[in-house]
Nucleic acid binder design. Structure first.
Lengths: 196, 196
DNA sequence: GTCTATAAGAGGATAGAC
DNA sequence: GTCTATCCTCTTATAGAC
């Protein structure tokens, strides 16, 4: 029962973080969406920061599970795995399931940097992507003149790229069309490629 | 005198928006930084949203002035002008002078979409960049399979790309080195280019 | 136009009964 | 563990004297 209730809370937090972001999400809203009193919510999570941490842990676990599947598929190149991962993050974002945290909120960052369960997963995902990035650079598929950390941060940033939401809000294109464009602009750039 | 005082207010708002973002910036902080009482501030600007609008107008005017210079330089190709514009926005961001507004705050977006002075400048800049984008696509310099709006939104998004701040926070690289990497990843992509 | 003082309300967190 | 009721702080905005 406790696990089910906490899952419902994290689901609500995840959705609200994706919809309004951390600063505009209120604990009252979370409680209302779950259908419990705010005081009950605080019996499960000690603070608003802890709620955000739980949502981030859930999405990181989903990402790690997805990369597990990619790692097991031996037919994929490292570049193909990175492509697939970026595509997955964009699908999650367009589905309204990507919690977005402000980079500027220092109280939140302090709390997250003390959250071991969150950090473990963040490092695990970074390690896995970092290995793929270096392999892709060694094979000549990724630009080896870019530091691996630049590529890694860029992929994380594209997971919450506002361009996706703006294009979706325009209402002129399908989700898959939007993802194709943003994915292509990320990996192949805005400039034209020489033919061939 | 009034103009000087309001300039000082906008400068403070601009800096605080760049540092903490809209939601975490308080009107008390703005007043304290200018060195006046909060009530005096409200004699100049009617709301927090109006303050944000004034800061956006200032940075858009700076951008328009910069693009004026690029337009006048007849030796530049459209692609070179877009490069220079993106580089300029990244320099502004790393200098701590790029106000960043949350895409999710609907009260703010409502106020901005009723701010004619802001919209005029946003459209003027979009039109100028849009013309360069189409010219660069026609000449084969930019990927013509990407809709011009996708390119435009991507350039606006890179102006507040969090990757810049994360790399700067690492403290390992100079601003110019960081800008070179992010600019290259934007225009030429993460993938390696075929030699030649 | 500047100030001090304060209204009005939102929001995070807790007390204490059941 | 759930509830109602409440505390307390922060924040936007305004009143009213000078």
């Amino acid at each position: 029962m406790l696990r089910v209730r906490e899952d419902a809370i994290v689901t609500a937090v995840n959705r609200l973080l994706a919809e309004k972001g951390y600063d505009l999400m209120t604990v009252d809203e979370v409680a209302a969406e779950v259908g419990i009193a705010k005081a009950s919510l605080y019996k499960h999570f000690s603070s608003k920061e802890a709620l955000a941490g739980a949502a981030m842990i859930r999405v990181l676990d989903r990402a790690l599970a997805h990369t597990d599947g990619l790692e097991r598929d031996a037919t994929l190149t490292p570049l193909a795995r990175l492509h697939a991962t970026a595509r997955w993050t964009m699908q999650v974002q367009l589905a309204g399931e990507m919690p977005s945290l402000p980079a500027q909120n220092s109280a939140l960052r302090t709390a997250l940097s003390a959250n071991r369960d969150y950090l473990d997963r963040l490092f695990a995902l970074s390690d896995r992507l970092g290995a793929w990035i270096e392999a892709a650079q060694d094979s000549g598929a990724l630009d080896a003149t870019l530091p691996a950390e630049v590529v890694l941060y860029t992929l994380f940033a594209r997971a919450c790229d506002p361009v996706l939401g703006v294009l979706k809000a325009g209402g002129q294109h399908t989700d898959e069309q939007i993802i194709d464009w943003v994915l292509r602009s990320c990996f192949r750039g805005l400039e034209a490629r020489p033919p061939g």
